[in-house]
Design a protein around this nucleic acid. Structure first.
Lengths: 191, 191
DNA sequence: ACAACTTCTTAACCTAGATTAAGTGCTTGC
DNA sequence: GCAAGCACTTAATCTAGGTTAAGAAGTTGT
């Protein structure tokens, strides 16, 4: 239960009372694999923190092709930031890949917490900053690296995910088709 | 001078004293076109706010190819977030494309301001959130759209930039070579 | 225990966009 | 005013990665 408090304490120090208050604002749920906890077209109401299991966020374009935006396993936050912030219908799905225990923090509670515990505004600012830096790097990687290099980078960055998630999702994350990914993997194994 | 106060007031309301304090922490500089205000390998010390003119941030990969991460004109913030946050040498250059007046806010001053005016922590949190959402969208666009679609999206999103910046930089931003961009543009004009 | 589905692979063929190279106007500095 | 660079174009050729299609294993539900 307090994995989330641990996560916060890496960045800001909450007093016991503040921890109490924080815990009173969240909700924990269990989801089975294959559950869609958010659908495209819906308005996203929560920031999700993963206690255990694996989730992914993805969209589907006109051609009925999925594109994975993010994976999240224990200790990671995930959401549809666009929809959550704008309170407009988003175009992301969030799906459970592996049975998961997830902490839900509603937008209203999150904003109340910013006022009641300014340290949490700092926490989420820093979280968002780190996420932005990671997205900038991934963007530049997509512009300048080959699929092979992007795959190698993925492997060294998320070694645990490789064994756990279907490789078609990894292919989608790095931006290639499953067929090409398969071919590329075979080529790499020969070396 | 107060274009930056206007920019802040879109999101949070500062009192006259707070505005005074904020202004005492910033510095304004003029730069000629072609100036590199940040070099790859340096540690980024500032958040930059553009009063006038145009800047761009970009990196250079092994193949000596430039990739544009961002443009910034009046009313936009720009920086090397990775280097600024980690205080490690970055791999971004920031270059002046058109004579510019730029406001500099040092990392130390920015962090002091977070403590002295918590509203500014909120301001930068929201700024960063919006930037993250924009980067996520651009990432998904790069994964799922053709070069032509990305160009059309760029045009409708940044109509002013198209006339003002050399098209090779726009090509780089959307992720194609200048040669292909030229061919694509000719094709689009025929329609 | 079997049908239905999903994941992954292989292979032939295709194409968006890269590369190379050459040429045309421009600015810009001296 | 002219040489040296830029910025852009055009065109031929090339290739990383996509598409289509089919089959092999593995997984899931009943």
């Amino acid at each position: 239960m307090d994995r989330i408090l641990q996560n916060i304490s890496r960045i800001v120090a909450l007093t016991p009372q503040e921890q109490e208050l924080f815990l009173s604002k969240i909700e924990t749920r269990d989801y089975k694999a294959k559950t869609l906890i958010l659908n495209a077209g819906e308005i996203c109401q929560y920031s999700y923190f993963v206690n255990s299991g694996i989730l992914r966020s993805f969209n589907i374009n006109d051609n009925i092709v999925e594109h994975v935006l993010a994976f999240a396993c224990h200790g990671w936050w995930i959401s549809d930031m666009y929809s959550l912030l704008s309170q407009k219908p988003g175009n992301l799905f969030i799906e459970v890949l592996e049975d998961a225990e997830v902490v839900l923090l509603s937008k209203e509670n999150q904003e109340q917490l910013y006022l009641e515990i300014p340290k949490l505004e700092r926490f989420f600012r820093i979280l968002t900053e780190n996420s932005l830096v990671a997205h900038q790097e991934r963007l530049m990687d997509n512009l300048s690296l080959s699929a092979e290099d992007r795959f190698e980078k993925f492997c060294s960055k998320y070694p645990t995910l490789i064994q756990k998630v279907p490789q078609k999702h990894i292919a989608s994350y790095i931006g290639v088709t499953p067929e090409f990914f398969s071919k590329m993997k075979a080529r790499l194994l020969k070396k």
